[in-house]
Amino acid sequence: MNQLQPITKNGQRVLTTLQLAESFGADTKIINRNFQRNSDRYVQGKHYFSLTGEELREFKGSRQIDDSLKFTSVLYLWTEKGAWLHAKSLNTDQAWDAYEMLVDDYYRVKENVTSLSKDQALVTVLRTTADLVENYDSVVKEQHELRKLVIQVDQKVEEQITLDHGEQRRLQKAIATKVYEVCDDPEERPKLFREIYREIKDRFAVTSYKDVKRKELQSAIRYVENWIPRKVVS
């Protein structure tokens, strides 16, 4: 990564959109598109600063800037947290690697480190804790959505499960009980067995009674219990 020209705003280092795009190996249009698509996630003063009017003119006059920015009416300066959101949106190895380098070599200046007072240290700890809580809430939300998706997949799978051996035996037993209940003639019973099995396949749209869905087992048993042969057998 090329040496970046330091830019500070409100006591913290920031990057222009062009600098951020070059660092991430992306185009400024991609950075701007990420910002537009996720604008509700970006907070001014936290993730970026927007310079317009006199403030923008003073900024342009105080430093050398890219020719493409000379006539811009609004200039975005991205903080470390803003760069993190962009890296998350791009979600490429190059973007994450570049972000880590920015944090190590640009945003967090290691030279001339000054000691913090107790009050300053407390503020830093509180801000860090608030950031951790914010990130934790985001992770918890993502995990909750993932659990919901897993449950939905499990439900879909459960809906397609067919009868196991024991459940097939329960249905067979219900069928046999019904046939013997409605017919005393051993010679007629095979016809009734064929009839009831055929109707079960038609009723539950399966090629075999074994393919009846597990969730429909109770419905199949009730169907058998209320079944009446087409030809009344004496």
Rank of each mutant, 00 (worst) to 15 (best):
M1W: 01
N2E: 14
Q5I: 09
P6M: 04
T8Y: 11
N10Q: 12
V14S: 14
L15W: 00
T16S: 15
T17D: 12
L20W: 00
E22W: 04
G25F: 01
K29E: 15
K29I: 10
I30A: 13
R37V: 08
R37H: 10
R37T: 09
N38C: 05
S39W: 00
D40H: 08
V43T: 13
Q44F: 01
Q44K: 07
S50I: 04
L51C: 06
T52I: 09
T52Q: 15
G53V: 03
E55Y: 01
R57M: 09
G61R: 07
S62T: 06
S62A: 14
S62M: 02
Q64T: 14
Q64P: 01
Q64D: 12
D66T: 05
S68D: 13
K70W: 03
K70I: 07
T72Q: 10
S73W: 02
L75Y: 01
L75F: 13
L75D: 10
Y76K: 10
W78M: 03
T79F: 00
T79R: 11
E80Q: 13
K81S: 15
A83N: 05
L85H: 11
L90D: 11
N91K: 07
A95N: 03
D97V: 04
D97R: 10
L102D: 10
V103D: 14
D105N: 13
D105M: 02
D105L: 08
Y107H: 04
K110Y: 02
E111G: 03
E111Q: 12
N112P: 04
L116V: 02
S117R: 06
D119W: 03
Q120G: 03
L122E: 14
L122P: 00
V123Y: 08
V123E: 13
V123T: 08
T124D: 07
R127M: 08
A130G: 05
D131W: 02
V133K: 07
N135C: 02
D137M: 05
S138T: 12
V140N: 12
E142Q: 14
Q143E: 10
H144M: 03
E145N: 11
E145H: 03
L149D: 15
Q152T: 13
Q152L: 05
Q152P: 02
Q155R: 08
Q155S: 12
V157Y: 04
E159W: 02
E159G: 09
Q160R: 12
L163N: 07
G166C: 03
G166P: 01
E167W: 00
R169I: 10
Q172I: 00
I175L: 05
A176Y: 11
K178C: 01
E181P: 00
D185R: 09
D185G: 03
P186V: 04
P186Y: 02
I196S: 06
R198M: 06
F204N: 02
T207A: 13
K210M: 08
K215Y: 01
K215M: 06
E216H: 15
L217G: 05
Q218A: 12
R222L: 07
W227P: 02
V232I: 14
V233H: 13
